[in-house]
Design a protein around this nucleic acid. Structure first.
Lengths: 203, 203
DNA sequence: GAGTCGTGATGACATCTGTCATCGATCCTG
DNA sequence: CAGGATCGATGACAGATGTCATCACGACTC
């Protein structure tokens, strides 16, 4: 027979991570063998502790957690369950593209978490039904790669000149991309456009 | 002798709330008698369940959780412990002004949570040492009430006209307040200023 | 090969935004 | 009451921003 399922737990909030660990340890067939507070830590812990499954928070500054998920799944072959506060269709799309096997919003009842871990460990996938339905019905992202890049740089109140420098483009070009993005998103300012794109999970 | 300490637990993320509940229930002298997912729910639950102490998340949309804390402490006389992801000095200042008896960032180790609850239930206060030190050394908010109000309305990419309507001021006046706020915060745009003020915990 | 699309850029134009000086009204204080 | 401070507002001005037309290049498709 095999031992308990060995879980890697990553969340930047110590209190939440500890509470989840306590919760999982209550299950007889689960054990938390490693914890991490960032994407980099998660990758290191995964390669040294070799867990059976990794439970990663999506929001772990610095970095978006998805890169860690892609690394842990791709290079180490460890199945990844993504937990996120901002469960938007666009995020789900990118998570699945990164090879994530489970996608759980933080609005999920706790009783289901252990069930989901067992499902994914058993080789199945698990995706929140509401998010999946929304992802299938919503229109895909209408923005081009450059438009997304410029919006990303515009998110924190930067001027056109700062954005242009960050993206290595001429200021006029940046204005053009921002203009088309704003038109596509029906936003009155580039900040509103950036915010809208973020809410959709596109950036 | 008295029974266990009866705790009200409020957090908008079901997963986190459930995990914290499981964690607290592991303590023999603690019991979670009510849960809530919003500030309004927390007030209602507090007045019906009459807990000995309330553990509230600061970020519970809609509303900032501080109003619920003030209500629960002020009208019901129940001591409140505030848990927050964004533990900044300005937030601590406002929390203490609202009568909060404990202030805990989510970076706190889980093992201390039960200790803190017992402390506050015993009549003492508990404030995270790092945040308190920062709050005492940092310069206080240099912005006036109107400047804060305008910045709050400017946070989500609104135009000057939209802000003016939201705050019931003339567009020119809004521009003046934004200008002074930007100067005080050394921000190149009003969005950067709003972001900066938010990061300091001022809005 | 023509047509389409994304990319990068430029110039022109109207509007928006940030800055500043200034004014009147109110409120507080000596 | 005079002086000062704050608030709300206005007008003027320079510079930033949003919009549009246009061009050129490469990739890709029909």
């Amino acid at each position: 027979m095999s031992g308990p399922i060995r879980v890697l737990l990553a969340d930047d909030e110590t209190l939440v991570r500890g509470a989840l660990a306590a919760l999982l340890e209550l299950e007889a067939d689960l054990t938390v063998v490693a914890e991490a507070a960032s994407g980099a830590e998660a990758i290191a812990a995964a390669s040294s502790a070799r867990p059976d499954i990794a439970l990663l928070d999506l929001e772990m500054p610095p970095g978006d957690g998805l890169t860690a998920a892609a690394e842990i799944h791709g290079a180490l072959g460890i199945p990844v369950v993504m937990v996120t506060r901002h469960a938007r269709p666009g995020v789900l799309r990118r998570a699945l593209a990164a090879g994530v096997r489970g996608f759980v919003p933080k609005t999920t009842p706790v009783t289901r978490l252990a069930v989901i871990i067992r499902e994914v460990h058993g080789g199945r996938r698990h995706v929140d039904a509401d998010i999946a339905a929304a992802a299938l019905t919503e229109l895909p992202c209408p923005l081009t790669a450059r438009e997304l890049e410029v919006l990303r740089a515009a998110r924190h109140g930067a001027t056109i000149a700062q954005i242009a420098e960050a993206v290595h483009l001429a200021p006029g070009t940046v204005r053009n991309y921002l203009s088309t993005a704003m038109a596509k998103l029906h936003a009155p300012t580039r900040y509103a456009a950036a915010r809208s794109a973020w809410q959709q999970g596109w950036i």
